[in-house]
Design a protein around this nucleic acid. Structure first.
Lengths: 328, 328
DNA sequence: CAGATTATGTCAAGCGCTTATCATAAAAAA
DNA sequence: TTTTTTATGATAAGCGCTTGACATAATCTG
């Protein structure tokens, strides 16, 4: 482990001088600065960030708490966030909290113990206060944690509405909402509300068919099969793309033709799904913008924790991607 | 920030005693141990891991360097690894290196500066020596870095072979390998070798049609379109599932029926692809086992850096998932 | 009850780095 | 040349925690 004193020795100056170069304060001549930099390079010196942190310097670590990167949407989101963070000089500590309260709690403790500079919260198994109690700068994705924690989210309501309207425009009149029916501030709730409102405007009857997120594949398939076989349905707004894909597949098995017999639209629009299932219409969340804004807000909080923001709620515009499945 | 001294005060004992219960050494009565634990709980105390690390204690941080979690395969792999690490008390620092040499290098520096206990290397833009030079415990996924760095990988050769044989069994005689053609130790190379060997055994002619990983979607599509339109082909071994999906889609566009006109098989078998594209035959990598083994080996290295392993190369068995696309 | 064992405390050094203070030296400005 | 300004060094304290050395109680054993 090469350390500060080694650099000083190599550069032929005092540790104070080296520290001055690194932290850029006090008087330093160009000549010594160069000498020091050369010594650092030659020795391949990296200031021990652990020791620096102990002085109260920033750790440049951010805790990312999300459900699961094996889900393509979260995978892409986390990927973009990590990239943004990197650009701003931060390292990412990743937690896949799944729907595991205990794991999320433990991680919260862990990242605190590691003196992270802030947290981006995207999994929401825990209550507000557990996050609040960390005393750390936090920004939230897709769910309101508290008044003073900024929340970034796609315009889910608008998305639900757009999706419903799109199916209607292509002739669907028995339009179901299929997906997570929970009403507890989960992001899909707003999608549902957008659906409901539009259904009302269109003077149609609302139909909600629950397919729970955390269920096994088989149970989800059963629920969908039940819907397709036993209900009069000619349009489906799926709460997310994966559910939509399931519907696509099962329809095919049952000989239901999409979009002739059934019009379908998903939600999320991750790149993977867009690129590799080109038949599926969907509401696209602006993942790169979400990532950018989350990081920007978090950094603002970190640099100035007390400053009030002029806005704590950000709804980023979604986009309707029209493809075959909705009737195009 | 509640600190050790606060706990000591609360528990009515000395810092030494508190430290003794935390680090579990020396003599401690059950009574005091309990008192201390209660004090810690009441104050919601977490030992400052930064300060501990400075004493040379483990940081319990692991650097994960992979191409990109927005790819479903890596998403799932990283997810499983993170879970394993968590079970073993480690936190995960995530780096999506993409194919960016500079970013990978910078991350390597960063994680060193953060005193990580070890690295799991899955992106391979850099040379051996840059990893070697870290002096950290390392395990590698899918590529040989050096003699003394354990490498875990699926049995890609066997996979390539199985895939080819499967297409043959269903009647294909003009079997192409489509994907990354590089020959530099990239994991797909072994898949290609498995294909080649089997083609030879079957007394067929080998055909390799390059579709480069990092190209844009449009260019990949062009390459595939060219293949399907201008070549006599009735079977395709794709180097990975995403390429296979592309082929599936383009075939459909061109009115080529799979599996009647063309038999197709992919590679990777991430859960997302398996669950949501049930038509696709593929060679399934045992992601959970890979994750488990990587973590197990890394921990072994961390706990005993000098101990020689009895094996530095691990090929985990792949599984042929037979579905419609290959002719079932 | 003496001696061993167990339990706790006090004190101080140190992990690698930052930073303030004070002192001194070299260069630039007057 | 004298005064400022700029550049560097020596020294020490401290971030929060660990750990060893040493001392002193309290408890247990035979």
């Amino acid at each position: 482990m090469v350390k500060l004193t080694d650099v000083a020795a190599k550069a032929g100056c005092s540790v104070t001088t080296v520290s001055r170069v690194i932290n850029n304060y006090g008087y330093i001549s160009q000549k010594t600065r160069k000498k020091v930099h050369e010594a650092m390079k030659e020795l391949n010196y990296q200031p021990n960030s652990v020791a620096r942190s102990l002085q109260g310097k920033k750790t440049k670590l951010i805790g990312l708490i999300f459900p699961d990167v094996s889900n393509p949407f979260f995978g892409e989101l986390v990927s973009k966030i990590e990239n943004q963070l990197f650009k701003h000089g931060y390292k990412t500590i990743l937690c896949n909290a799944g729907n595991d309260k205990e794991k999320e709690r433990t991680y919260l403790q862990m990242v605190m113990a590691n003196q992270v500079d802030g947290i981006i919260a995207g999994a929401h198994n825990l209550g507000i206060d557990e996050y609040q109690r960390t005393g750390l700068p936090i920004v939230s994705f897709d769910r309101k944690l508290s008044e003073n924690i900024p929340i970034v989210s796609a315009d889910n309501f608008k998305g639900g509405s757009l999706a419903t309207q799109e199916l209607y425009n292509h002739g669907a009149r028995h339009i179901y909402f299929v997906g997570n029916p929970t009403l507890d501030g989960h992001p899909t709730q707003k999608r549902l509300l957008g659906y409901k409102e539009t259904i009302k405007e269109l003077k149609l009857t609302e139909h909600i068919h629950p397919v729970i997120f955390n269920e096994t594949l088989a149970l989800k398939e059963m629920a969908i099969r039940d819907l397709l076989e036993n209900h009069k349905v000619d349009g489906i707004v799926a709460s997310d793309d994966l559910t939509a894909l399931l519907i696509l597949n099962i329809s095919h098995d049952l000989g239901i033709h999409i979009p002739k017999d059934l019009k379908l639209i998903g939600f999320d629009g991750s790149k993977v799904v867009r690129d590799f299932e080109p038949r599926l219409s969907t509401i696209v969340q602006p993942i790169p913008s979400i990532a950018q804004l989350l990081v920007k807000l978090l950094e603002k909080r970190i640099d100035n924790p007390t400053e009030e923001l002029d806005n704590y709620t950000y709804y980023l515009p979604v986009e309707l991607l029209k493809r075959e499945s909705s009737g195009n």
